[in-house]
């Protein structure tokens, strides 16, 4: 029914947790200020724990800046942490503190993560990561991202219910089983 496909393949600009060779590649387009993404966050974490090596998780930015005024800077903050090797730590930090995303808080989080805060602040001030965040957003639009969070499972947009952790994990596990069952032609990567 839904034919929306991920048009930007997972690439080396992405933040990737796990092996891209895993049978299931889950791409999330998210917004650190979006409450739905906040609800999805522990569900994705649970899926990652449950599927372990079977799952590769990729996070891309889709800040809805008009409704979430802090979302773009928060996304850039995660990228700035990423240049210091701590994208995922900042990702966790932001989703765990969704109600405190003003810039001073971002600097506090950078400090808590033992980042070089001066460099972090400079990158934010200079908009070093603005382009990356915007590119993620545009690629998402072209792939049929229709709000946040939007998930793609092995390249196909997932229109089902991610909010039920059991059902969501079951879908991911089924995809893993399917890929295993139909190798070597089952993988579309």
């Amino acid at each position: 029914m839904n034919m929306s496909q991920l048009v930007v393949p997972v690439n080396d600009r992405d933040h990737v947790a796990g092996s891209v060779e895993a049978p299931v590649v889950l791409v999330e387009y998210g917004d650190f200020e979006c409450p739905h993404c906040g609800r999805a966050y522990p569900i994705v974490e649970a899926a990652r724990r449950y599927l372990s090596d079977e799952l590769c998780f990729v996070y891309r930015h889709f800040p809805l800046a008009e409704v979430h005024p802090h979302a773009t800077l928060a996304a850039e903050a995660s990228e700035a942490a990423g240049t210091q090797g701590k994208f995922w730590d900042m990702h966790h930090m932001l989703f765990e503190h969704q109600n405190a995303l003003d810039e001073p808080y971002l600097l506090v989080y950078a400090d808590e993560l033992h980042l070089d805060v001066t460099r972090f602040a400079t990158e934010l001030a200079e908009g070093v990561h603005t382009r990356k965040v915007r590119d993620d957003f545009r690629g998402g639009v072209r792939s049929g991202v229709n709000g946040t969070p939007t998930f793609f499972i092995n390249g196909a947009r997932f229109d089902g219910n991610w909010a039920d952790p059991g059902a969501f994990i079951a879908v991911l596990a089924q995809v893993a089983a399917y890929v295993h069952g139909s190798e070597p032609i089952g993988s579309d990567r």
Binding site: P35, H36, L64, E66, V141, N146, G147
Partner: peptide, 16 residues
């Protein structure tokens, strides 16, 4: 009821 609703999404994409 969703924050990423269709009109909000198009609002973000307006420049494109």
């Amino acid at each position: 009821p969703v924050c990423g609703d269709q009109m909000a999404l198009y609002n973000e994409i307006l420049p494109d």
